[in-house]
Computed example of a mutant assay.
Amino acid sequence: MRFTEEQRQFAAAVRDFCDSECKTLQQRDALTDGGTLANSPDLLAKLAELGWLGVSIPEAYGGAGAGMVEECLFLEQTSRGLAPITAYSTGLTAAQTYLRYGTEAQKKEILGGLCRGTLEAIALSEPEAGSDLGSARISAVADGDDFIINGQKTWTSAAHVADHLLLLARTSTGHTKHEGLTLLIVPTDAQGLEIRPIETMEAHTVNDLFFTDVRVPSESVVGEVGRAWWHLLRGLSVERLIIAAMAVGAAQRSLDDLLAYVKQREQFGRTIGSFQAVRHRVADLATEIAFCRSFVYEVAEGIDAGEEQQLAREGSMAKLKCTEVAKHAALEAMQLMGGYGYAREYGMEGQVRKAHAPPIYGGTNEIQREIISKSLGL
């Protein structure tokens, strides 16, 4: 697609902001306590003040009222800029369900908070229900005007920094495993909820959640009781586009840093970028990233035009291809940068670590291939 002048200016402004606030390792360390945090409240507050958080959220709830194209521009540029705001995308995914199925009160609280810089989380996966969310077993039992929740969730991104969880729980059993699931809003400070960090190769991002007689009022239900599976479908498809846009930004950052290195580094009396073995690999990366970017914005433009019939398939295609290209770009850059690619000072090792998670979360890329193949009648 061809961006409007306003969209180009918006992307440039976000890029300039990131170059000013978090371009260097020293800046990012200062924002993240030496790289131990995945999110910077200070940076989120600045972005909220600029009106860039929730750019696709309607103005009635505190957003800018723009579309998914603008949201993808924001996500791409903040990812490229290595801005430590990864939990924002989790809240943005939750927002898709609130926008379509939430009450006015829920929208004002949750979406308004997201635009102001507060964070939200989604609790879907369980120890025995990851890719197969229909097998979720955590229980929410009606008790008068309340629900009492017991069970465990795992791999819950941002729960430790979020204000609320959008929880998938089983309120009844039905003819199929997808019936009887309900979405509930659970405050992260609710009595009986324990949030326990999971150590990974990145900064603290994901958590185990343990619910022991957690009580929430019936007003916490999002949408209809027992209809959570159908409420989640569009949000999960948009989530894949969100991940894809961020992956394009990450891939572009790897390419940017690689280009800067191969244009400056000399061996055998010439820059290493002048060697065909290097420059052809860089050319391949640039081509892959360009095609990924084009597809992401084609899907985003379709959403903004109301053409959502292909969203499930195309969202999966975007997520699949873009995350794998981002991973490949980081690994190629590390290889071509030699020992410097392995050194924390140059940043590429962090790109490599981060690139391994997106092909897994938001539905593994194996699951995306299943979605795509089924859409083709296979």
Rank of each mutant, 00 (worst) to 15 (best):
A45H: 14
T90L: 13
S294T: 09
Q152G: 07
E239Y: 01
A105L: 06
P58F: 00
L285P: 05
V282A: 02
R196H: 08
R293M: 12
G62V: 12
P58T: 11
G81N: 09
D42C: 02
M337F: 01
T103E: 05
E332Y: 01
T200A: 10
T271W: 03
V14P: 11
L336K: 14
G377P: 07
G192E: 02
Q309V: 15
C18Q: 08
G35P: 11
S316Y: 00
I195H: 08
T200P: 00
T212K: 15
L124C: 05
T90D: 03
T323Q: 04
I371Y: 07
L209H: 01
S131G: 15
V225L: 00
T188K: 11
Q335H: 13
G91Q: 05
A136S: 15
L336T: 13
F295E: 09
D42L: 13
L311Q: 04
G223P: 11
L258E: 08
Q26M: 08
L233Y: 06
A300I: 14
Q77G: 03
V161G: 02
E128K: 13
M246P: 04
E120L: 15
I360A: 13
L378T: 05
D284K: 13
F74A: 02
T93S: 11
F74V: 01
R15F: 08
G81W: 11
R344T: 12
A87T: 10
I138Y: 02
A158K: 05
E224M: 12
K374L: 14
Y88Q: 10
Q26H: 10
E199F: 06
H175P: 04
A203K: 04
S89N: 05
R215A: 06
E128S: 12
G113M: 10
T364E: 14
Y261S: 09
D213P: 00
L124K: 03
E301T: 13
M1A: 15
L259A: 04
T36G: 04
A355V: 08
K319F: 03
Q264G: 11
A83P: 00
A251L: 06
A305T: 03
